[in-house]
Amino acid sequence: MRKLCKFVPSVFSHQTITLTLKEEIQLSTVTLTINGQEVTVPAGTTVLDAALGAGIFIPTFCHDPNFPGYGGCRICVVEIKGARNMPASCVTAAANGMVVETESPAVVETRKTILELMLANHPVDCLTCEKSGECKLQDFCFRYDVKGPKFVGEKKDQPLDTSNPYITRDTNKCILCGRCVRSCNDVEDRSVINFAYRGFKTKVAPAMDSGLAESACVSCSRCVAVCPVGALTYTSTAGKGRVWEVEKEQVTCGWCESGCLFDLVKKDGKVIGVVAKASGEGRPLCLKGRLGMELRYNDQPLKPMLKKDDEYVEVSWTEALGLDDIMEKLK
């Protein structure tokens, strides 16, 4: 049986550590040393969360507090005294007496190499990338002084997927952290994308490696909301402003009682788009919600499109929002 929909944040995510401590006082705790600082956390807490809770930064790509335990990108590796290798802090449980170094020369060397490897298989087109300014890859390269790809060789060369009118998918920019896959697969009747192929050829793809439009994608944008790089971006805001030119204002969707969170993207005080931020309790985010927010807040929203007979066609707002029957009655 497949897992049911669950949207409970990890009890070990750093925002909830203090809460956990208070609530679950009976839980045993462990004390470890991170960068010389003694840290006490509930047993079972990851080294990553222990560090973040103590105000020590560790970079992550694939770690998602809602779907922990992946451990694939390896950017969060740390040195632990006595360990044979460098474990990923996001999947390593803190233990009593553990001595952790999060920015030792060896750790920094490893992170730099991992970033160089990512860049070597990436277009490195930050000048025109929509994500520039809020891209984790860019941020960490800045932090670790990685100027560009150090390795030359084969690069992914996959076509840009613009088949879906809402989501632009550029798998050449994908670092295969899998957050989109885990997010999409958390909703049983979606699970539209998954890892396909293997090794260097691995990519995130819908069934039969089709475009998003051909797949069963419902454009809920859960995937876009978690993508740490420019692989998944909103088509509606493309080219309308750089990250540093816009402000974001959080709004709560009112279509249903769940109240998913959206961000209004504003430039010069004007809303230029609405993007998904986080799903509400027990809800998976939906296109209708986001379109509704667009219509409400955006003075110049793009025309809504819906998939009919396997093709996206422009529809009226009432149809897009499922209000046709109501409008009929109000006439």
């Binding site: 694939g72 190499t113 060789g153 084969e154 890892f195 293997r198 260097f200 050829k201």
Partner: peptide
């Protein structure tokens, strides 16, 4: 090993390819 890498983690997926190319 490069052909048989599963592709999950960055060092093996990208790193073995670059070792081979070198």
């Amino acid at each position: 090993t490069q052909l048989e890498s599963c592709g999950k983690c960055t060092p093996c997926r990208e790193g073995t390819k670059r070792l081979l190319e070198t």
